[in-house]
Write a protein that binds this DNA or RNA. Structure first.
Lengths: 110, 110
DNA sequence: TTGACATATGCCCATATCGGAATATATTAA
DNA sequence: TTAATATATTCCGATATGGGCATATGTCAA
């Protein structure tokens, strides 16, 4: 047994830059977009787009609706909330950092 | 060429659950903690802890300070900000979802 | 039906990665 | 110097993963 059992969650899914690009494209593309639109928008080979969409689908980061012979994808942001919340827990760290820098710049920090 | 050139960034680093655990432990453990503390806190073999720390270090998610024969690690939250910001861009998605649910519950949504 | 279009899958290869165990390296104490 | 402590590194095996390409599947149009 190597590798922690393929934990396929949102964190793992968005680790891949391409997958983040897809989500970004969908988010900016308005409501729903089909695969062909994504392929043109991103300029990658279609199978690749479909595969990454597959991962995003498994994790629930995108939703699909069949529309005739095409499939309309849309972002399912709900699944991104855990990531947001988790990172937010560390907010105080970068805030502290900023405060410290600011204080130093103002000449009152140590 | 397979696999997108080992993009070693914060996103990739936190994809690993163990690494998130380490960050969490460090965050709750107060300022700095040494490796031994982490090993006891997490209950994992020491090499494993060191290896994951190595990745976090490379990405800049933790800082190290040598203190005698031990190394004090601390969270460098700054590096987590991009993740937070990125996820935040999708905030409207889960907010919409919540609003929709809420509206439905209140009997005024469609 | 048949053919064109849209999308998903399967297969293969190269490589990254995790866990485990042993060991190297550094530093303090005796 | 030598032993002990603290931590990092290396080697290994198993496995997951991404890209490329070919192809299967599904759906509409003629």
């Amino acid at each position: 047994m190597a590798r922690s059992a393929t934990t396929l969650d949102a964190f793992a899914a968005i680790a891949e830059p391409r997958r983040r690009e897809i989500l970004g494209a969908l988010a900016h593309g308005g409501g729903e977009q089909d695969v062909t639109w994504l392929v043109e928008e991103l300029g990658w080979p279609q199978p690749q787009v479909s595969k990454h969409l597959g991962v995003l689908r498994e994790v629930g980061l995108v939703s699909v609706v069949r529309k005739g012979r095409r499939r309309m994808y849309s972002v399912n942001g709900e699944e991104l909330k855990p990531v947001y919340e988790w990172a937010k827990e560390f907010e105080r760290f970068w805030e502290n950092q900023l405060r410290r820098i600011k204080e130093r710049a103002e000449g009152r920090g140590k």
